[in-house]
Amino acid sequence: MSTSVDDAIRALLLLMPRLVGRVKRTPPPPELASFNLAPRHLSLLAYLLFEGKLGVNELASRLEVAPATVSLMVGDLSRKGILRRREDDADRRRTIVSIAAEHHAAIDAWLGRGAAAWRAALSPLTAQQRRMFVDTLLAYERAIGDA
């Protein structure tokens, strides 16, 4: 079945607001509600949940922001007890960040569903199709940013 560009746009104009709405309607679990987590914290927490312990520079690279930005977020979340930071035993200049054990289950229950949903959606695709999908979303983000 062939889908024209206009047909695909129509489908996405219906789909995207529903996706965004569902994400916005997924409140943090009660045990995290008092922390006033901002959207910028979600990507950081999701990376730590998905990847495990990471250094500040690794987080900055993956989040595509400056290390100073990540340091500020990590400092804020560490003061709230959501994250733990420690020096890397092999390199004392390197800070290792992880989700605090007492909050890991709540964060996993909250953000882990998104990772599982992406895995279900992307697993049937070939590596090339997955790359095309991600590249298409990136191109959309650039185009909407230019508008």
Results as ranks from 00 to 15, higher is better:
G55M: 06
G55V: 05
N57F: 09
N57L: 08
L59V: 05
L59A: 08
A60Q: 07
S61E: 15
S61N: 15
R62G: 08
R62V: 07
R62D: 06
R62N: 10
R62I: 05
R62F: 13
L63P: 03
E64N: 15
E64F: 14
E64G: 15
V65W: 08
A66G: 14
P67R: 08
T69Y: 09
T69E: 07
T69R: 12
V70T: 07
V70Q: 03
L72F: 15
M73S: 13
V74K: 10
V74C: 06
V74D: 02
D76L: 09
D76V: 11
D76E: 11
L77T: 01
S78M: 02
R79T: 02
R79I: 04
R79S: 01
R79M: 02
R79L: 01
K80P: 00
K80M: 02
K80A: 03
G81P: 03
G81H: 04
I82D: 00
I82V: 03
L83C: 00
L83R: 01
L83E: 00
R84I: 10
R85L: 05
R85F: 12
R85T: 10
R85I: 05
R86K: 04
R86A: 03
R86D: 01
R86Q: 02
E87K: 09
E87S: 08
E87D: 07
D88K: 02
D88R: 04
D88N: 06
D88G: 03
D89S: 11
D89C: 09
A90P: 02
A90C: 05
A90E: 00
R92V: 03
R93E: 02
R94T: 00
I96F: 06
I96H: 06
I96S: 06
V97F: 06
S98H: 04
S98Y: 05
I99M: 04
I99Q: 00
A100T: 05
A100I: 00
A101P: 08
E102V: 11
H103L: 07
H103Y: 12
H104P: 04
H104C: 10
A105Q: 10
A105S: 11
A105F: 09
A105T: 09
A106C: 05
A106S: 10
I107R: 08
I107V: 13
I107C: 09
A109G: 13
A109L: 13
W110I: 09
W110A: 09
W110Y: 14
W110F: 13
W110K: 11
L111R: 14
L111I: 08
L111K: 14
G112I: 09
G112T: 11
G112H: 12
G112R: 14
G114C: 14
A115I: 15
A115Y: 14
